[in-house]
Structure formats: structure tokens, C-alpha cells
Design a protein around this nucleic acid. Structure first.
Ligand SMILES: [Mn+2]
Ligand SMILES: [Mn+2]
Ligand SMILES: [Mn+2]
Ligand SMILES: [Mn+2]
Lengths: 216, 216
DNA sequence: TATATTTTTTAGGTTTGCCTAAACTTTATT
DNA sequence: AATAAAGTTTAGGCAAACCTAAAAAATATA
């Protein structure tokens, strides 16, 4: 499998949660920073290889073997992120881009030994579960901060937006994995929320509250 | 710089020691398992980019900026080899192919932190010196076993042939970095040598003695 | 020195992955 | 239901990195 095929599979995997009837070429190409025509081409190729189900104009979904392949790449990505954060002192926002490259290194032994070296971690530094060797992932019961009510409390287990600027913002505000977030109140006019984090109150925009995941 | 450009630069770096007047397209293409026509194309491209000096029919040599680039890749390759051997329990012969992929990962911070994590190693698992951040390499006074006389003793510091089959052979014979090798005698008819390694005597072929480096 | 052999380059193709622009299909609006 | 808008596919190109086969240059041999 080529680097590009792997990136498409992984993207379809990420997108099909929220696009149950099919990931459109538009959505997919935007996610990958490419043009819709390029997505169509690649999708057709993956379809011919038996990794996805594709009906013209109806979007694309992984089939079983496509999902197995995608999960292998997700596993590698998350193990490398864990390595970068735990062993090489990379910060939350620096790990993603490098893991994006490392996930494509081909060596079964490498990933097996890396897993062992890290002590078989269950979650990556963003709080996302790491698939095991057989592609089994822990399903998490996670909510967005935006779905909580005033008075509710949750602990941060991950993010949706993994952009550097967002992760840096969280770092600056001292919001990290495990941080306990309590909703103080909700402003209707702009959907922002006042939250309490470790004795400190701050206002999070709608965009922010929609991109932070918590477990209650 | 593309992956392919990096591989060509690194190959020219390795070959120009023994091809002082210029690395021919024939030699270069054979080393890279490609066709001479492909080497010519890439050399012209590297020349246009100002990384090598190339005169048609006269072979190619790195210029200063080409050598700096090549040394960066060599540094990455050897640091990754050290990581694989020391931290992930890869054996001597397994590390090369994976490092061949890892050396192309682009991140200054990654290589800096990896160096730190490994404790700023000076030599890789094959005994080759690791260039520092500024591209400075320790010049080693190394001899091939084949250059020794009966009675001479040396300690193994590296190999020339890095093929799996050779490294596996060395593993089987318990020849590793630091092994003390004493020449017992020399057979003129086939240039083989009887050597003593830790109380054990064995016969090494000419090919073998030419591919093991020692420090006296 | 003339000829043969080897080496190197050039010319023309192929594959992968990307693009733009035009054509087509689906969905939304009147 | 007809038309407009939006989304998708197709057609035709391009760049990188490889290839084969033919032409050209360098080197070896007679
Ligand atoms: Mn990737
Ligand atoms: Mn992650
Ligand atoms: Mn390489
Ligand atoms: Mn090495």
C-alpha cells in the first residue's frame, strides 16, 4: 500500500463516524487538503483493490478489509504519538505532524517492539484509544463540552480539532488530559460557556467547547 | 528534498571514498539497484540544485552543500539504528532496512531529541561514527582484518558489507562489536585466515576478512 | 591507428498522484 | 415541475521517478 492510499484509508476511517451513509468526495478532499477530482480517482482505485465500497455520487465507506488496514495505520500513528510525548518530550501540539510521517514506516517488528517498549499503552496523548494488534479498539463514551449543562462536570479525555493552534491554546489555558472541567454557565447569544478548571474560571467559545471531549 | 534525492546523495557520499575522481553512473545505479539512465537523470537534477559537481561522462562528486545534506541523512540513519538496537532489541542485521525508511522522516526536533534520548551516542551499532549536529564526523583509524599479519590482534569496530546474510553469519559466529580478533595464520592459496575469537578458532574466507573492520 | 567493446547519455514511455476545466448528476429553490 | 445551485465525475495535463532501446562518447584491443 502506498503512502497516499494509507492516508486516504485513515481519513475515510475518521470521517465515516460522522458520515454514516458515505463520505463524499467533497468532505474527503477537504479533509486531505486536495481537490475532489483527486479523491474520486483514489476512491476508485481503493474500490478496485477491494478496500472500500463506492457508488458514484453516493460517497465511500470502508469495507471490512479496508477497516482492518485503516486500524493498523491508526495504531501506528497513536503509538508513535505516545513515543514522541513520553520518551522525547514533545508537547501535545507537536506530535501530530511527525506521527503523520512515522505512521507510514513499514515493519511489523518495529511496531510490535515499540508497543512493548512503551508498556502496551491503551490511550495516546490525545486520549484516543490505541487499537491492539488485532485491530480491536476500546469504544469510548465521550461527550463534547458543548453537550454539557451548567453544573455538570467532566474530565478531559481528548480533542476533535488537532490543529497546532488549538492544542497550543489548550496548553496555554492549562487544559490537558485528565483536567476536570465544570460548566459554570452558558451564554445563549454566542453559545460560549464559562467553565471552571482547577480554581480558575474562563470563557470558552462555541468552537472550543465543541472540540473538547470529556468523560463524565 | 525528496526521498529519492536523499538516497542518491547518501549513496554518492558512501561511494566517493573509493571513487575519488568521480562516482560513475554505472557504479551509482548498481549501488541503488536502478538503471544507469535513472542515475544520469537524478545526477543532472542534483547538479542543477547545486548539490553535486557533475561533468558528463566523468562521474559525480558531492560539493560542500551536498556533503552537508548527505551527512544529515547519515546522522539520522545511524541514530535510528542505535535506537532500534538499544531500545527495541533489534539485532545487528535487522536494523538497516528499517533505518533506511526512518532516515527520511523530516523533523529537526525529532532527531535532536532522539540524540538526547540515546545519550548522545558516538557510534552506531555497526561501529560507524555518528555525525554531530554540525556534520562533523570522527575519522576512524580502521583496518580490514585482511590487512593484519599472523600474531596481530584487533577489536572489531564495524563492517563493510551490511547485508543481512553477512551480519547473520557474524552473529552465528559470535563476532560482534568489541570482539577481540587475533590472527592465527594465513592460507596463501585462497587468502583465508584462521583467527582466534574468545578461545575459539575459526577460518574466515577472504571475502569475510575484507569486510570486517578492526581497531588495533 | 582503426576497430571493437564498454560506458554513458538521450529519447520516448509508464505509473502514481496530483491538478484544472468541462460535463454530468443530484439536490435545493422557485 | 422547471430551473438554479451545488456536488461529483470525466477528460486532458503535469511532475517525479522509474524504465527500455538507440545514439553517442570513452576506453580497450587488435
Ligand atoms: Mn500520513
Ligand atoms: Mn492522537
Ligand atoms: Mn533511504
Ligand atoms: Mn550502520
Amino acid at each position: 500500500m502506498t503512502l497516499s492510499e494509507e492516508n486516504y484509508l485513515k481519513s475515510i476511517y475518521s470521517l465515516q463516524r460522522e458520515h454514516r451513509k458515505g463520505v463524499s468526495t467533497n468532505v474527503l478532499s477537504k479533509y486531505l487538503d486536495a481537490k475532489p477530482a483527486s479523491a474520486t480517482e483514489m476512491i476508485k482505485k481503493l474500490d478496485e483493490k477491494g478496500l472500500v465500497r463506492y457508488q458514484p455520487y453516493q460517497g465511500v465507506l470502508l469495507n471490512e478489509s479496508g477497516e482492518i488496514s485503516a486500524l493498523k495505520i491508526v495504531r501506528k500513528h497513536r503509538l508513535w504519538e505516545t513515543f514522541l510525548a513520553q520518551k522525547l518530550d514533545f508537547s501535545w501540539d507537536e506530535i501530530h505532524d511527525v506521527a503523520e510521517q512515522l505512521e507510514h514506516i513499514k515493519s511489523d517488528k518495529l511496531i510490535q517492539q515499540l508497543d512493548k517498549f512503551l508498556g502496551y499503552p491503551k490511550y495516546d496523548p490525545h486520549g484516543d484509544p490505541i487499537p491492539d494488534e488485532n485491530g480491536h479498539v476500546i469504544k469510548m463514551e465521550k461527550k463534547r463540552v458543548s453537550q454539557l449543562q451548567p453544573g455538570d462536570t467532566g474530565s478531559c479525555i481528548g480533542v476533535n480539532d488537532t490543529s497546532s493552534s488549538f492544542l497550543q491554546f489548550l496548553d496555554q489555558q492549562n487544559i490537558r488530559l485528565g483536567s476536570v472541567i465544570q460548566i459554570v454557565n452558558f451564554q445563549d447569544f454566542d453559545k460560549s460557556m464559562t467553565v471552571r478548571i482547577e480554581d480558575r474560571e474562563l470563557i470558552l467559545s462555541q468552537i472550543a467547547t465543541e472540540n473538547i471531549y470529556v468523560r463524565i
